[in-house]
Write a protein that binds this DNA or RNA. Structure first.
Lengths: 142, 142
DNA sequence: GATAATCCCTCCAGTCCCTGTAGGTTCAAG
DNA sequence: CTTGAACCTACAGGGACTGGAGGGATTATC
């Protein structure tokens, strides 16, 4: 029987976040001690690990909820899970592309800077000048 | 003289977002027509492009504000801008690493799935089983 | 068995970065 | 001059947490 703090540490989650997951129905209401404190078992540890891992991988809580629903009703086909994964893969590749472009830009900014002299600092120009060519009207993320 | 809608289109921003940037002081209060509608010029287009580009590249509004402050006071050294860029680069590389790991995971999930049969669908197991090894107690981002 | 440190509880407000809606006004085209 | 799109303000909501106040429970130590 794990306390909420232990569960938090084991999964790299904040205690409040676990309680938040409970309020939105992503985590079940756990057992309580006589004093009213939450106690968790292996099932909850697994489930929270799943959630956290999904979040770290960029899934929205909504997508994670869908996957958990699939897990809770294993009699269904995995086509749904597959399509969720495919959708996610696209977004992930998009993000990687943009971040790689950013990395390049930042490296160039840093290499062109570092002279401690305004005349040679092009950080701001770089960011401004490339604004239009890179505007792709996509959502920024979040 | 550009309307807010035109500015929005040119920069891939929503109209409300531009007004929001104004309320938080990231964009200046623009000229108005007699009727009270906002009209923008090249300076605002540049500034907003800068902001959006920064956002697309993963900068927080706070970091962007810092950079804009530097741009507004060009008499300072660029050491500050440089350190902002360096900090950002680290975060970007972190995110890339995590996303690349995710991509791999997702690809494996998809390749192992697609059989439309529960017995062979390992999506959920993959996500759960790898939860602990990848827990790194880092912030998830945002 | 008392005490102190640490953890836990609820409730609620705040953060970040927008996004959407309601109800009304202005502008440009035909 | 009328229509319809675009604009205005003001405010609520959303996603995913995060932090704090004020108080109770548990555990380790003396």
């Amino acid at each position: 029987m794990l306390t909420i703090g232990t569960l938090a540490k084991r999964t790299g989650t904040k205690v409040q976040t676990i309680r938040y997951y409970e309020t939105i129905g992503l985590m079940p209401e756990p057992e309580r001690t006589e004093g009213g404190q939450r106690r968790y078992g292996q099932a909850e540890l697994d489930r929270l690990s799943f959630v956290r891992h999904g979040r770290q991988l960029g899934f929205s809580l909504e997508a994670i909820r869908d996957l958990l629903d699939l897990a809770d009703n294993p009699a269904q086909s995995c086509a749904d899970a597959d399509s969720i994964a495919r959708q996610q893969l696209k977004q992930v590749e998009d993000r990687i592309d943009r971040l790689v472009a950013l990395r390049l830009e930042l490296k160039r900014m840093i290499s062109e800077c570092g002279h401690d002299s305004v005349a040679q600092c092009r950080v701001l120009e770089v960011l401004r000048d490339h604004a239009e060519c890179l505007t792709d009207h996509n959502s920024i993320g979040g």
